[in-house]
Structures are given as C-alpha cells and as structure tokens.
Write a protein that binds this DNA or RNA. Structure first.
Length: 350
DNA sequence: AACCGCATCAACCGCCACTGG
DNA sequence: ACCAGTGGCGGTTGATGCGGT
C-alpha cells in the first residue's frame, strides 16, 4: 500500500502556470496569506492545482523581490563556498542570497557553475598530466638506481630528502592579501558562526563529522582553526591562494605539511574535487585526474607517510560534509543528518 | 528552411521530518 | 507510542529556446 497522495492527481492541472493562475494565486496570498495550509489553498482560490505546486510557484516565482538569472561574481563565490562547506543544501545557500530561490541556485549550479569550474579545470588537466608523467618517470628511474647501486654515503650538508618538486616551489608562496580580505566565507569557523547565527547547532558537543577541525573524526587532514581552508573561491578568484594563515597576517602560505608540493598544482581550478568529499565527487575526481595523479602527493616527496597527503586521501577525507558521503564513514559517530544539520528548519530560517 | 543537439529552467516527484490528534 | 496530514527539501524530468549544420 502506497502513501496517500497529497492531492487528487486526476483532478489537478500540471505543467506551466498560466498568467491567470499566477494572478489568482498572487492576489489571494497577498490579501489573505497562505492560511497555513497549502493543501487547502487551491480549493479556496478555485485553482485546479496541487497545494505543493502552489507553494512552489509562490516561493520560486510569485513571491516579491525574486531575482532571476544574472548571478554576480560575488554570488558565485558565495554559492561555491557554501557548497564546499555544507554540500547541496540549497535552501541554506539560498538564505544567504536575498531574492534567490533554492531552485534557482540549484539550477544555476547544475547547469552553469559546475561546468564553469570543470571547464577551467580541464584546461589545466593536460598540463598536470604531463607533470605527473614526468614525476613518475623520475620516480621509476630513481627506484631502478636504488636497486642497482649500493647505498652511498651522503655527504654532510646534503639532505637525503629528495623532493620531486622543483626547489623553488618549496619556498613559501606569496599570498595576495585580497584572499585574506574575503576570508569570512572561506573560513570554517566563520561559516560555522554564520550558520550558528542562523540558528544552527554547532556546539562543541555536536561537532559534526564534516568539520575539519576535530581530529577525532576519520579525517587525515585537518586545518588549524586559524587557517583558511581552500575553497572554490580560489578557483573562481585565481588571485586567491590555496591556503592562508590568518592568525599572524603572514603574507605567505605556511602549510608545509598539507600542501607541500601542491603549490605547483594549478591553483585556479584544481580544488574542485579537492574540496569535494562525497564518493560521487571523488569518483569524478579520479576520472579527471586518474588514480596516478591522485597519488602524486604520496611517498617520495621526502615527507613521511603521515605528513604527505595524497589526493586520494584528500578526496576521501571528511574535509567537509556532503550529503552523499556514505554512512559508513560515520561509524561510531553521529551522522550529520542526526545532529540537526540536515534541514534548514533547524536554522530557523522559515 | 529544416533538422539536430545542447542548454536552460520551471515544475514535478518522492522522501523525510515535524506536528497534532 | 502511533498515525495521518502537511511542509519542506533535493533530485530529476520535460518543455522550450537557441545555435550550429
């Protein structure tokens, strides 16, 4: 036995709304409000529409101050940053963009923003693949040499920590101050406070697993709380760098552990999957980069295994929570959906 | 001019959480 | 505690428009 339908499907009109229907609905709601019951509303007005359809039409189209199309760069950034942090919680994201509806944002993301980012990424993918290939060759050559040549004494003053990366990229990379200015949506803590302001539950007791700030969760990567973590913003705004230390206003990137070697990674596109942790997106990442490139940060970079972080590790980590993260990642800990993060209603944004 | 493929977006669908009886 | 009704959400679909051939 199936679930009872919310309305009589046989007697409701489907498809695009006519101007007359729009006018009826708008006039009624503006005069009487919704009456707290969408299901009964179409009958009151004399519309042969499902109550849900009326609600959707009102919220997405007829409601005052609705904006359609023409997303600004700033809105792009906000959408991306929030998507990075909370996943496809379109209603929450929409709440940060006055006049925008969740449906609009969802469509915009699916049809344009995602492609825009992936397009940028693909451009550099080939160059990246070439780099990886060279690195692999160098690695194989070195391994062959190690097998064939007896160990040699390393002269004093010469490090045995061979880096696959050119020495120049081991230097701290300059970080434009502009990336610090708009950090409020890059910063996990800021996002938390933003969501908390909205009524979210971010108490320490309910530190959600998607947080990168708590090492108790199965996340090999943790961002110090005073550091800005990489976001899509960096892709949209190439001037932004991968990581910024904000606590001391340093103008250099100081995350040698996490990002050693990654400075050379194209910084205006490559983080699209980095910041995505759900399996679906991870699969996509593997597709784009291939498993080889996913492992590029591992092993022979001169850092220990605990220090270096492969792209695979990164993508699998709980850098951020995403709704598509498989449940098994939360074994023994509260799942985000169970700690009051799933529904925007928890944020009191109605 | 006709056809085709792609992009866009409004609308639908199914699911889940909440609420009140 | 249970159940039905409802609201709200995210994923998906299908109609439409547009550009290219």
């Amino acid at each position: 036995m199936g679930r009872a339908p919310c309305c009589d499907k046989a007697n409701v009109k489907k498809g695009p709304w006519s101007p007359e229907e729009d006018a009826k609905l708008k006039a009624y709601i503006e005069q009487h409000g919704t009456g707290g019951n969408w299901i009964a509303l179409p009958q009151k007005i004399g519309l042969k529409r499902c109550g849900k359809s009326c609600r959707l039409r009102w919220l997405n189209y007829l409601r005052p101050n609705i904006k359609h199309g023409g997303f600004s760069e700033e809105e792009d950034n906000i959408i991306c940053s929030l998507y990075v942090s909370i996943g496809s919680r379109w209603s929450i994201i929409a709440a940060q963009l006055p006049g925008r509806t969740d449906n609009d944002i969802k469509n915009y993301w699916n049809t344009r923003l995602k492609k825009k980012l992936l397009g940028k990424q693909r451009k550099e993918q080939q160059a990246q693949a070439r780099r990886v290939s060279c690195l692999k060759q160098a690695e194989m050559k070195k391994e062959c040499e190690n097998l064939m040549v007896p160990p040699i004494t390393i002269p004093a003053g010469v490090t045995n920590q061979t880096s696959y990366w050119p020495s120049e990229i081991s230097e701290p990379i300059p970080v434009p101050t502009s990336s610090v200015q708009d950090y409020n949506l890059h910063n996990q803590a800021s996002l938390r406070s933003l969501l908390t302001e909205l009524g979210g539950r971010f108490s320490d007791q309910h530190q959600p697993p998607y947080s990168t700030l708590n090492s108790q969760y199965p996340c090999e990567i943790s961002f110090p709380q005073d550091q800005v973590y990489p976001t899509f913003m960096n892709m949209l705004n190439p001037a932004s760098a991968a990581m910024v230390t904000t606590s001391n206003n340093s103008n250099t990137c100081q995350s040698p552990i996490l990002f050693q070697g990654f400075e050379n990674f194209p910084n205006d596109h490559d983080l699209i999957e980095l910041v995505s942790v759900n399996q679906q997106q991870t699969d996509a990442m593997q597709g784009y980069y291939g498993m080889e490139s996913m492992e590029m940060g591992n092993g022979s970079t001169g850092t220990s295994s605990t220090e270096s972080t492969s792209w695979g590790d990164l993508s699998m980590s709980s850098l951020v929570y995403s709704p598509l993260v498989s449940d098994h990642q939360y074994e023994g800990m509260p799942h985000p959906r169970d700690v009051g993060f799933q529904e925007s209603r928890y944020f009191g944004m109605q």
